[in-house]
Structures are given as C-alpha cells and as structure tokens.
C-alpha cells in the first residue's frame, strides 16, 4: 500500500504554536497503523504566522490541533485501507 506523506513543520513558529503535540499524534498514529505513514520533518512550510502547519498528502493544514490531526489522518488511513480491500 502506498504510504501517506505527512510533512510536519518543526520550525520556530510552529514549535511555539505546538508542533510537539502534533509530532506526538503522528508517532501515536504511526504505532497504531504501522507502515502507512511517511513522516517527514520540515523546518518551514512557508506559512509561519498560521502554525502549527502540517502538509498531509500535499494539502496544507494550518492552525491544526492535535485532535483534528488525529481524526483527519485516521480517516485518511482507513479510507485508503478500504480502497485497497
């Protein structure tokens, strides 16, 4: 199954906006659904004042909360799994 690319920004602004909590969510989802995500760290996604930023499968998610990120990723992973069934 093709992995879903998740780019997380850990630059200064996003760090201050709470990138750590997002990184923990990614780690958690990665443990729950191994081999589904390709997590890439970035130092800037060019949207500093609207952080924290994550680019999920090419789509930029700004001001995202950990809960929102968890739900969106899990939905996407489950959708991909269904498509592959």
């Amino acid at each position: 199954m093709e992995k879903i690319a998740v780019e997380i920004c850990v630059g200064t602004s996003c760090h201050l906006y709470g990138a750590l909590d997002l990184a923990q969510v990614l780690e958690e989802v990665n443990m729950k659904y191994p081999e589904r995500l390709e997590i890439i760290s970035r130092t800037c996604l060019g949207n500093c004042d609207k952080g924290p930023n994550v680019r999920l499968a090419g789509k930029l998610l700004e001001r995202i909360t950990p809960e929102e990120l968890r739900n969106i990723i899990i939905q996407l992973v489950q959708k991909k799994e269904k498509e592959n069934e």
Partner: peptide, 22 residues
Amino acid sequence: GGTTANIVARERQVNLAVDYFY
C-alpha cells in the same frame, strides 16, 4: 536556523534531513 539550513541545502543542492523526535 531552519530557514538558514534551507538556504544552505538549496545552494549546495543537498538534502536537509530533520528529526521530528523531541
């Protein structure tokens, strides 16, 4: 600095690898 590192990577045409583990 993140932006600085991006500039170096771009100018040297190399890959910047960043950890996401804190």
